[in-house]
Each structure stands twice: as C-alpha cells, then as structure tokens.
C-alpha cells in the first residue's frame, strides 16, 4: 500500500517534468490571450473612430473671423488671421517665451491658425473666439480661469499655462477644406 508521503515525492518529481511545466505554461498563455479582447473592447469602437476626424470648409470664414468646431469631444479653434496679426505673430522675438516656437512651426497656411481650444494649464476653454471676447494682452486668447494670455499664434505669453495651445494634426484637402485628425 502506498502512503501519502511517497505519493507526494513522486508528485514533486513530476512537477519538474518539462512536459507538465509546458502544459501549464501553455494554458497560462491561452488565458492571457483571452484577456486581450476583454481589454481591447474598452478602446474606442469603430464608429467612434470614424468620427475621430472632421472635415471643415473654411471658404465662408472671413478675414478676422474665427470658428469653433467640436472634434473628439473638444473645441477646435480656427481663426482666419489678418495680415497684421500674421506679421505680429511672425516678427515677435522668441526670447523669454515659456515655450518658444516660431509661427511657421505652428501653421500650415499662415492665413489659418488651427488650435485645440483647451488651456494647457488646467483644461478650461480660453476666450477670444467671438468678436466681443476678452483676448488678453497679446490679442490672441485669454483663459478666464487662471489668467493665461495667448498670442495670435496660440503661444503662451503670460500666466500659469506651461505650454502653447496644442495644434491638432490636420491637413488641407483643398485650399479651403481642412481635415482634422
């Protein structure tokens, strides 16, 4: 008759066996692979992704005007800048800026500045889109929450915001149609 102890010792020998270890390992791999679909289902679905890019027709946007469009649940600012505003944005010295960037780094066509309208400080939406809005000391945008001032290129010039307003990825499909995202 066998006893418990020698059963156990045989079992321990068996545990070290390559076949048995690889069987359990493979079962583990299978279980891990099954977890992926369960995680991935929380990523944006195909219908959400289909709305992840927006096309905007700018042909009716007059010089000096701005529009706000919703993109991925956030406001996107598009402003048709005047020659004067472009000149100011290009000629200002980068010295002393918190997040130095030339204007040409931030626009594709200098007429249009496209920005994600979310203050880089704590996520408020800055003022400056409507003609009557406070635009701040530098004439661009002004965040009312904690007083960040942005210039005509959306660069942070004064106030607590750490970086310039984000430029979303976009491209011109034609002279006046842009696709954001």
């Amino acid at each position: 008759m066998s006893t418990k102890s020698d059963l156990k010792s045989e079992q321990d020998e068996g545990k070290r066996d390559f076949l048995i270890v690889s069987t359990y390992a493979l079962a583990g791999v299978g279980a891990a692979a099954f977890v992926w679909p369960l995680i991935d289902q929380m990523n944006p679905a195909a219908d959400t992704l289909a709305l992840a890019s927006t096309e905007i027709d700018l042909s009716s946007l007059e010089e000096g005007q701005a529009i706000t469009v919703k993109w991925r649940g956030k406001p996107v600012f598009v402003r048709h800048r005047t020659a004067d505003e472009i000149k100011q944005a290009q000629e200002v010295s980068l010295e002393g800026m918190r997040d130095p960037q030339t204007d040409s780094e931030r626009v594709t066509k200098e007429k249009y500045i496209v920005l994600v309208g979310v203050c880089t400080h704590l996520g408020c939406v800055p003022l400056g889109q409507k003609s009557g809005d406070v635009k701040g000391q530098y004439g661009g945008w002004f965040c009312p929450c904690h007083g960040s001032h942005y210039d005509h290129s959306g660069r942070i010039r004064k106030g607590p915001a750490p970086t310039n307003l984000e430029v979303p990825s976009y491209k011109f499909l034609s002279d006046t149609v842009i696709k954001i995202g």
Partner: peptide, 25 residues
C-alpha cells in the same frame, strides 16, 4: 454590459453595435 443599453429604443441597435463596431465585440 459596458456596451449595452437597456432601453427598448436602443437595446437591439446597441447589441448590433457590439457585433459590428466594438473591438472584438
């Protein structure tokens, strides 16, 4: 249940959205 909507107007379509649009749905 993270993707399902228990409402008579949306239940059927939310299941079809799971079948068609949700990743691995």
């Amino acid at each position: 249940s993270m993707n399902y909507t228990p409402h008579v107007d949306y239940a059927f379509d939310s299941v079809e959205r799971i079948m068609r649009d949700v990743n691995h749905g």
